[in-house]
Amino acid sequence: MASPLLRRAATALASLLLLGGIVAAHAMRPAFEDATAPIGHRGSAHEPVDARRFTIEVEKVEFAHAVSDGDALGAGPRLTADPGNRAIWVVVWATMTATDASLTVPDPVLLETGSGYSYAASDRLSNALNAFGTRLDPGIPRHGAFAFEVPRERLTDPTLTVSAREGLDDRLSASAEVGLGLDADRIERLVDAAADSLAIEPVTYR
């Protein structure tokens, strides 16, 4: 049998390994913010994406050089995409419905690109789906647009990330990640066909 010294060494090593394991497990413990972050649900455009607390269906993506609030009283101020960095407006039209409680769509709504950049939807359009005061109610679909100003060269494989929450608390709320399914060719064609100006109509009931 092994000598007492060897056994002690083995015990010490096992203890050190266990201690190391405890430290490692502690370091891997997620931060409170991560542990309670909105729960993501993936899907793609042109089909309803079920994020459990709400559903979203992206119906149309349009490109434009300028956007504005359009409503019965005439168009609001025109927001022109920055020509300096060859930016363009990406307007994503979607229908969202809450599942079981009244929800709001908090900022930021993000357009994440394949190159790893995230762009927040403009908060300067009061008709947008992410505008202050837009509410989602169970069983009552709402149709509207999110508008993102994005430099053209960074616009690859965009994904829309939207969350919705009850009240002010977004812990463990729902979030949907909708792949827009736009490849380089399609993006190029959409850029070529981009409208000079696009009016964002108010959010409607569907």
């Binding site: 599942t99 079981d100 409680a101 009244s102 005061g133 509410r135 109610d137 169970p138 069983g139």
Partner: peptide, 15 residues
């Protein structure tokens, strides 16, 4: 005050 249906869905007041 909120509205609640049979299935437990809830609605906040509308503006």
């Amino acid at each position: 005050i909120r509205a609640v249906d049979d299935a437990g869905r809830t609605w906040d007041q509308t503006s």
